[in-house]
Amino acid sequence: MNAPQAPDDALLTIGVFAARARLSPKALRLYDRQGLLAPAYVDEATGYRYYRGAQVARARLITLLRRLDMPLARIRQLLDLPGPVAAEALAAYWRTVEERVAGQRTLVDHLRGRLTGRSSEMYEKFEIRTVDVPEQQVISEFRHTLAHELPAFIGASLGRLEQAAREQCGGIVDAPFVQYYAEVSQESDGPAESCVPVADADAARAWAETNGHGGRARTVPATRLVRTRITKAQVAHPQINSAYEAVEAWIAEQGLTIAGPCREIYFADWDAAGPQDEVCDIAFPVQNR
């Protein structure tokens, strides 16, 4: 027969409370220091900590959230929110976890291919196609950027350019893209150019004359692109390199020559896409040798 539980308003020693909450006293002291779960009373003379039975539910919730590897600071923020808002915050956290794990999974595939020397087999999973792209009028931003800075630059610059295209340049007529004029890595800073195709060339030139972010307006010549389509998880660096290498290998096999800077073409809503949704084309302009 189970022993009777103390009332929720009764003070419990840290040992008794730890047993009920299924936590160690050490964890309870840590949660107190982090502002997650403070004792209801601390005896000034002895320093002994006492908790109330009503705090058990919060303690067990912290334990469950920790099993999701949620950082303590984020748990503290979540627990201060109303229930429905906290539930949405938890869902948002888990989406970031799923995206990270999906990216790590593709990175493992990339590394296994390199470590086993089976790069050619790794390339076979990428479907390669060619597409003819007509001449385009674009507005753009040009930046020297390292790999860890690149996602922020792409997101911010394409956001500004898409807004300008809609409001000042007659609208967006094709998928935005980023061109790379040299390698972008942790040691090499490109440069890279974010581009948005627009409808009104004259309005685009007028916009470029007054833009405060170094914006440009120019014509991109018609070209033939060799491209492969990748998922959101595959966009992360360095696993995106597998897609680039697959396209380059196919171009060499076909006896073609790369005729300009490579591109990442972002044709999908990035924020709405899941880790396994296709969002981007990796493409090279080509010509016959």
Results as ranks from 00 to 15, higher is better:
residue 200 D to H: 04
residue 157 S to N: 15
residue 58 R to W: 09
residue 265 I to T: 11
residue 165 A to K: 02
residue 247 V to T: 02
residue 77 Q to I: 11
residue 4 P to N: 01
residue 11 L to R: 03
residue 26 K to T: 14
residue 214 G to Q: 13
residue 274 G to C: 12
residue 272 A to Y: 12
residue 64 L to Y: 04
residue 257 T to V: 14
residue 189 D to V: 03
residue 101 V to L: 14
residue 157 S to Q: 09
residue 29 R to V: 04
residue 277 D to A: 13
residue 267 F to D: 11
residue 280 C to G: 03
residue 72 L to Y: 00
residue 279 V to D: 07
residue 65 L to F: 13
residue 239 Q to F: 01
residue 167 E to T: 14
residue 111 L to H: 02
residue 215 G to W: 14
residue 222 A to R: 06
residue 3 A to W: 12
residue 181 Y to D: 05
residue 87 A to F: 15
residue 100 R to P: 04
residue 81 L to H: 02
residue 45 A to L: 14
residue 128 I to E: 02
residue 78 L to W: 04
residue 158 L to T: 02
residue 113 G to F: 12
residue 189 D to F: 10
residue 216 R to A: 07
residue 94 W to S: 06
residue 112 R to L: 15
residue 110 H to G: 02
residue 115 L to T: 04
residue 135 E to I: 07
residue 205 R to W: 12
residue 194 S to N: 13
residue 66 R to A: 08
residue 2 N to A: 14
residue 128 I to Q: 06
residue 13 T to H: 09
residue 120 S to A: 15
residue 181 Y to I: 06
residue 195 C to Y: 08
residue 258 I to S: 00
residue 212 G to A: 12
residue 254 Q to N: 04
residue 24 S to Y: 03
residue 133 V to H: 06
residue 206 A to W: 08
residue 98 E to D: 12
residue 204 A to L: 08
residue 128 I to G: 01
residue 165 A to P: 10
residue 24 S to F: 00
residue 214 G to T: 11
residue 187 E to H: 04
residue 22 R to F: 02
residue 132 D to Y: 05
residue 7 P to R: 06
residue 287 Q to S: 10
residue 105 R to H: 14
residue 140 S to M: 06
residue 29 R to Q: 00
residue 29 R to M: 02
residue 214 G to E: 03
residue 13 T to A: 11
residue 226 V to T: 01
residue 83 G to P: 07
residue 141 E to R: 06
residue 192 A to H: 03
residue 278 E to M: 10
residue 28 L to D: 08
residue 123 Y to S: 07
residue 284 F to C: 12
residue 183 E to K: 04
residue 152 A to R: 12
residue 282 I to A: 00
residue 91 A to C: 09
residue 36 L to T: 05
residue 26 K to W: 10
residue 260 G to V: 06
residue 209 E to L: 15
residue 142 F to K: 03
residue 112 R to M: 10
residue 78 L to T: 10
residue 126 F to I: 11
residue 192 A to C: 11
residue 262 C to D: 03
residue 238 P to F: 03
residue 107 L to C: 08
residue 93 Y to L: 09
residue 167 E to D: 14
residue 283 A to H: 02
residue 234 Q to T: 01
residue 11 L to F: 07
residue 247 V to F: 04
residue 280 C to T: 15
residue 112 R to Y: 11
residue 232 K to L: 07
residue 245 E to F: 11
residue 240 I to T: 00
residue 175 A to Q: 02
